[in-house]
């Protein structure tokens, strides 16, 4: 491309810049209405959801819920199931600990009644 071509192209480009459409007021208003609506939606999110999301991202909540369920279920199975006769002594000691320390501390005997 020679200098003459470049100079000529620049004239066209200058003309095109000058004639370019501007942002119409109604489009600007629509864009800002979208912004407003988005902001309202974000602020309407439950605060705890935002807190969890902020911590580890959007996948955190189902993961946390699953973890709580598994913990409670494991805890309950451990408490409710009778120990076989051949269980080692430390298992009896652990159950004793639950009865004496953990259950009174939690305030309930049935962990499923804790509202999880």
């Amino acid at each position: 491309m020679n200098d003459k071509d470049s100079a000529e192209l620049e004239i066209y480009v200058t003309a095109a810049r000058a004639e370019a459409p501007g942002l119409r007021a109604d489009l600007r208003a629509r864009i800002l209405a979208d912004a407003q609506a988005t902001q309202v939606a974000v602020q309407a999110r439950p605060r705890w959801k935002g807190w969890f999301s902020g911590l580890t991202g959007h996948w955190a909540l189902p993961g946390a819920a699953g973890g709580v369920t598994a913990t409670v279920a494991g805890f309950w199975i451990g408490v409710a199931a009778p120990l076989p006769m051949e269980s080692p002594l430390w298992m009896y000691a652990a159950l004793e600990y639950l009865d004496v320390v953990a259950v009174p501390l939690l305030g309930v005997v049935d962990p499923l009644a804790m509202g999880f």
């Binding site: 370019a20 459409p21 501007g22 942002l23 489009l27 600007r28 864009i31 800002l32 912004a35 407003q36 902001q39 974000v42 602020q43």
Partner: peptide
């Protein structure tokens, strides 16, 4: 804007949207 400032949304719109419109057109 994410913190609730609509003036920031207006500033971003005025900064970006006109050029974006010319480009898309």
């Amino acid at each position: 804007f994410a913190g609730g400032d609509m003036d920031a949304a207006e500033a971003l719109t005025d900064l970006i949207a006109p050029r974006l419109l010319r480009y898309c057109a």
